[in-house]
Design a protein around this nucleic acid. Structure first.
Length: 217
DNA sequence: ACGACCTTCCTATTTATTCG
DNA sequence: CGAATAAATAGGAAGGTCGT
């Protein structure tokens, strides 16, 4: 899992985390069992407190809504562990973004549910994409192991060729390609890094890619 | 080489609809 | 009637295209 996730987990699970202070079990991803909502619970005030960094507010919110949010997530992902994970992430997000909540755009409770629901939906969407990608990979892979080995060899051979082709590019353009497709930088980031205009970077990448295609055959 | 404009994708939010 | 869910919409970022 990503470094971000590690940091997030530390936020909720750390000794000083609101969730733990709230008496949430050491397995901090397990929401409490369904409880009757406090009719007088002030969600907007609670979010405002969260925005000010008051951990007790997040604790109260967790007590109040975690079970229902788990239900929402569970309906979407249909997996208790995943749903607990999503609720956990949702509270991290609520804590981090409480200041961005705007009461004029809807109820605080609606906002909290919306955050949770979207996390679950995004997870499902990403999952579907990954699943279809792996399905594709599976279908693309031939059963015959000899062919697999041959393909692997061919892949390595092409990989070597790609380095040769990269060598033929001007250093600045090669850097663009490497930053874009190896380092994962955006075009804007590459432009800033190289001190070149954005349009130039885009053009370099485009032309370099076609040069590479041509070189690779 | 450059920059304006366009398209696509992703995420967040709101609104409409369904259901208990 | 309120909660849950689905669908629609808005906004922003990234990348590509095309005229200068």
């Amino acid at each position: 899992m990503s470094r971000l996730r590690t940091v997030q987990t530390r936020l909720i699970c750390s000794d000083t985390s609101p969730a733990e202070q709230a008496g949430v079990s050491k397995d901090c991803r397990r929401p409490k069992l369904l409880s009757v909502p406090e009719p007088s619970f002030d969600y907007e005030a609670c979010l405002a407190d969260c925005a000010r960094g008051e951990q007790q507010a997040l604790h109260n919110l967790y007590d109040q809504e975690s079970a229902r949010l788990l239900g929402v997530a569970l309906r979407i992902v249909r997996d208790t562990a995943l749903a607990e994970d999503i609720v956990h992430d949702a509270f991290i997000k609520i804590w981090a973004r409480a200041a961005s909540y705007d009461a004029s755009r809807g109820s605080a409770r609606g906002w909290i549910f919306s955050v949770t629901r979207h996390l679950a939906l995004n997870f499902m969407r990403d999952n579907a994409r990954n699943a279809s990608a792996s399905e594709f990979d599976e279908n693309a892979l031939p059963d015959d192991s000899a062919t697999v080995i041959a393909d692997s060899f061919e892949y390595r051979e092409h990989s070597g060729r790609i380095y040769n082709c990269l060598d033929l590019l001007e250093p600045a353009r090669r850097n663009c390609i490497l930053h874009a497709y190896v380092d994962g930088y955006s075009h804007a980031q590459i432009a800033a890094k190289l001190g070149a205009p954005l349009g130039t970077v885009k053009a370099w990448i485009k032309r370099s890619l076609s040069a590479l295609r041509e070189c690779m055959g």
